[in-house]
Amino acid sequence: MTESTYAELIGLCAGALLLTSVLTVWYRSQRASIRALALQGVALAALVAVVAVDRSEAELIVVAALVLVLKGMVLPWVLSRRPAPATGAPAPPQRGAGSAGDHGAGDHGAGDHGAGDHGAGDHGAETPMLNPVATLVAAALLGIVAYAVIWPLVAGSASPAAHAAPVGIAMVLIGFLVLVTRRRAISQLVGFLALDNGIATVAFLVSGGVPILIEFGVSLDILLVTLILQVFSRRMRAVFGDTDVDRMRELRD
């Protein structure tokens, strides 16, 4: 692969990562966010594959496959699993006393355009702390901060991969923004995973990834955390009727 092709492919993948990051913030529908997260996982896998081909490292190909399977498929699947019998029927009324009425509408109506979606079902849209425009402005500002902070560090490097490193930091910050602004547990998980993707992106861009053993360990950790939090959010739904973490204020003492 020529140098220019490599640079272009890196740029493409980085762009896709950043775009999907912004999409996770922008979408108000949980399903759409999860889909964006899956796309982000695929883009990350592609990025690893490009780096692998460029460095001709077989080990990195394995990592790319691992990333694809875990972040592109397994984690989004875990996140999108329905808590109730997953037949598409409306959730049983005893579950979710507060939001049971519009539960079904949220499930089916939750389109891919989060901004226009006002379904209040648990798996559907949510009401973030910031409105979509403010969120996008914040994401843009975070991107600028990331660039300003990282550029002095990578300016001296000739590698096109290193030049894309600010994207990783921007993903971390945007993932954090999702964590801060979303109310529902699942949406927060999405933010957490986007944040983790950002860290992985920085690692791959700057140093061609961490040793495969560590990569395995981290992946396992992420999977475990996600599974545990998924279980937690189910319990929360069972107890409170929804997964708005603001309801848990009283547990602090």
Binding site: L173, L179, E250, R252
Partner: peptide
């Protein structure tokens, strides 16, 4: 320290930035 996890996350977020 009002118990809101969002507030705590915001503290960390601001700290990182």
């Amino acid at each position: 320290q009002n118990g809101s996890i969002h507030l705590y996350l915001t503290y960390s977020f601001i700290a990182i930035i």
